[in-house]
């Protein structure tokens, strides 16, 4: 009695799952589609009611304006700030993580203090930092923001890398020590290759955190190192918005992240699950 209905129901169940999956994809992807599509629309198409669901032709005028006015350079700023700070955060963070994982430096207390830094709300530290930066002349400089992003990413990098390093068999490092490596060489020749996938996953997330930052950039940049997130908000108006620019700028700022995630995909899936398990 029960075996047959099960088999008959199997097909319907799969169809139902597909239906739900499709509805979900439409709901979650449509806004992204809308953002992209507006960036290719002409003003007439943007300001049409009822809205134009798909444009008749793709045109790049909205992007051309951004490049002509120099607004697109803010994406370059974001790219510099996020990649340089990720680079430094990975180096300093991995070193610190190795120290914590292998030598238990400072005991569990130091490790907990470091992760607690991550809970610090940006808005609570940005104000005193702003005053410090004004005094030091670091406002609106690459150096100032890179320093800030590096420091702000450190707890995450240290926490993640500590987990990955603890998974490396100690014997590999000891063997390298006996074979004639210095401590630094062990870090470079054994630990880094062994933690490679974790290193990549952590780097991508660190990059995305810095890339997505809005508040720090809003407060600590003026004109020189404005990031793309701040630039997008410049097109918001009280009465009317520069829709074409908002959309085009957002797309410009989204593409590098889509690209990075697509390339690094296989490391990320493991990174998410392992990182989550380890906390």
């Amino acid at each position: 009695m029960s075996a047959l209905p099960f088999h008959r129901r199997h097909g319907t169940r799969l169809a139902l799952r597909y239906l739900i999956a499709l509805v979900l994809v439409v709901i979650f992807v449509f806004p992204v589609y809308w953002l992209f599509i507006i960036s290719f629309k002409t003003p007439d198409e943007i300001f049409a009611s009822p809205p134009v669901w798909y444009p008749q032709s793709i045109q790049f005028a909205n992007y051309r304006v951004l490049f002509k006015d120099g607004d697109a350079a803010t994406v370059g700023n974001s790219l510099i700030l996020a990649s340089v700070s990720t680079f430094f955060a990975m180096i300093l963070g991995t070193m610190a993580a190795y120290s914590l994982a292998r030598f238990k430096t400072g005991g569990e207390n130091l490790a907990v203090w470091i992760i607690s830094q991550r809970m610090m709300p940006p808005v609570a530290i940005v104000f005193p930092l702003f005053l410090l930066y004004v005094w030091l002349g670091w406002v609106d400089t690459y150096f100032g923001l890179i320093l800030l992003y590096t420091a702000f990413s450190l707890p995450y990098v240290i926490w993640m890398m500590r987990g990955y390093i603890e998974d490396i068999p100690l014997e590999l490092e000891e063997s390298a020590l006996v074979d004639g490596c210095t401590r630094w060489e062990v870090l470079w020749k054994v630990v880094l290759p062994m933690a490679r996938s974790g290193l990549f996953a952590t780097a991508v997330f660190t990059f995305i955190f810095a890339w997505n930052d809005f508040l720090f950039a809003l407060v600590l940049t003026r004109t020189e190192v404005t990031t793309y997130t701040v630039q997008v908000t410049h097109y918001f108006g009280g009465q009317s918005n520069f829709w074409a620019k908002i959309a085009a700028m957002s797309v410009l700022g989204t593409i590098p992240v889509f690209f990075t995630v697509a390339v690094m995909q296989r490391y990320l899936v493991r990174g998410i699950s392992m990182g989550a398990v380890k906390g």
């Binding site: 068999p169 590999l172 006996v178 074979d179």
Partner: peptide
């Protein structure tokens, strides 16, 4: 020179 229990191969 040392040989380890779990081989310690890279």
């Amino acid at each position: 020179a040392m040989v380890f229990q779990n081989y310690a191969l890279y």
